[in-house]
Simulated scan of single mutants.
Amino acid sequence: MTILTVRHLTTYSYAAPVRLGEHRMMLRPRDSNDQRLLEASLEIEPRPRRLRWIHDVFDNCVAIADFSGETRRLEVENVITLEHIASDEPDFLLEERARTYPFSYDAEEMPDLARAIERHYPDPSGELERWVRRFVNQGRPTETAGLLMTLTDAIKEGVAYERRTAKGTQSPLQTLLTRRGSCRDYATLMMEAARTLGFAARFVSGYLYVPGGGADDDHPRRGGGSTHAWCQVYLPGSGWVEFDPTNGIVGNRDLIRVAVARDARQAIPLHGSYWGKAEDEEGMVVTVVVRRLPDPEPANRERP
C-alpha cells in the first residue's frame, strides 16, 4: 500500500476582463478496491457563485462551477491524498472461454458493453484493421492476454511520445500515419485497435506517478507533470483491466484513475467557456505534481 498526493493547478489568463461561463471539472478519483480517497480540496479563484457536484452517466464525479462578474484570471487548484494498492501485470484470471482469442462476451453483458465494443472512428480502407490483425496468430490459437500485451508494447515502441497542449485528440489513423502522439492519442489508438478485434474498451483519464519525481527526459515513465490517459479492456473473469500504451504498463502500477468514458471527449479534466474576444485568451498553464508520502513509522512496542 502506498499513500500518494496529487496537486493539480490549472491557470487561465486573459488580456482583458471576461465573464466566465459554466466550467466542469473531473478531478476527484474513483474509489475502488485498489485506490481509496483520503482527503480532497478544491480551490477556485475567483470563487464561484455556485459549485455543485453530480455523477455523470459513467458514474464519474463532476464538479460544476458557475460564476458572476468579470475576471482576467481563473485558477483551479485540486489537491488529493489517496491510498493506492499497486499491482504488477495482472494474473489474467480469465474465464476458460476467454483465454484464447476470439471469444464471445456473455449475452447478459452485451447490452452494457455494446457501445464500448462499437468502433468510434472511420477506417474506410481498413488500414487500422490490417495493422492490428498482424498481432493475431494465423492458423493457431492466440492467447488473449498475450495479444493485448503485445498490442500495448507495439504502440509504445512504434509511436513517438510528444506532450501536446492543443485541444482535441488525434484520430487513430492519424496517429498510425504520423507515428507521433500524446498519451490521449496513444489511448485512443489502443481503444480503437482493441474494438477492431471485438474487445470492449474505454478511455481513462487520471494521473501518473513517476517514482523519484523525475521528468520524462530522465525517467522511462512518459506523461508525468500533467494529466495522463490510458485505456481499459473488459475481459471475462478479470473485469476492466488497465493498459497504458504510453508506458507499456499493464495493471494499475503508478496509475491513478479519475474518470472513465467511451471517448476522450467525455473525460476532459477541466473545460468551460467565457464571454469575451477570442484574442483575449492568453493561454492555459497546467502543473501536476504527484508525490509519494513517506511510509508511516512502525509502532514502538515496548516489551515488559
Rank of each mutant, 00 (worst) to 15 (best):
R184Y: 08
R184Q: 15
D185K: 10
D185H: 10
Y186V: 08
Y186G: 09
A187H: 07
L189Y: 02
L189E: 07
L189H: 05
E192W: 09
A193K: 00
A194M: 08
R195S: 10
R195I: 13
R195P: 01
L197I: 12
G198S: 11
F199N: 00
F199Y: 14
A200H: 08
A200K: 04
A201M: 08
R202K: 12
R202F: 06
F203C: 05
F203Q: 03
V204L: 05
S205W: 07
Y207H: 10
L208T: 05
L208K: 01
Y209K: 04
Y209M: 02
V210Y: 00
V210H: 00
V210R: 04
P211Y: 13
P211G: 10
P211A: 12
P211N: 11
G213A: 11
G213C: 08
A215F: 03
D216I: 07
D217H: 14
D217Y: 13
D218R: 14
H219Q: 12
H219M: 06
P220Q: 02
P220W: 15
R221S: 12
R222Y: 11
G223K: 03
G223Q: 01
G224N: 10
G225Q: 09
G225M: 12
S226I: 04
S226L: 14
H228M: 09
A229Q: 00
A229C: 14
W230T: 10
C231H: 03
Y234W: 15
Y234A: 09
L235T: 01
L235K: 01
P236C: 10
G237Y: 11
S238F: 02
G239N: 11
W240S: 03
V241Q: 09
V241G: 01
V241M: 13
F243N: 01
P245C: 04
N247M: 13
I249E: 12
V250W: 01
G251F: 05
G251Q: 04
N252D: 14
D254I: 05
L255M: 10
L255R: 04
I256H: 04
I256Y: 03
I256A: 00
R257K: 15
R257S: 13
V258P: 01
V258R: 01
V260G: 01
V260W: 01
V260P: 00
A261E: 05
A261W: 01
R262L: 14
A264P: 14
A264L: 02
A264V: 09
A264E: 13
R265A: 14
Q266I: 00
A267L: 00
I268E: 13
I268P: 00
P269C: 10
P269K: 09
L270H: 06
L270Q: 08
H271G: 07
G272K: 04
G272Q: 04
G272A: 05
S273D: 11
Y274W: 05
Y274I: 11
Y274K: 04
W275S: 12
W275L: 15
W275R: 14
G276S: 02
A278P: 00
A278N: 03
A278R: 14
E279C: 10
D280I: 02
E282G: 06
G283P: 12
M284E: 15
V285R: 15
V285I: 15
V286H: 07
T287P: 01
T287R: 15
T287S: 15
V288W: 12
V288K: 04
V289H: 07
V289Y: 02
V290Q: 10
R292I: 02
R292H: 07
L293G: 07
P294K: 12
P294G: 07
P294A: 13
D295K: 15
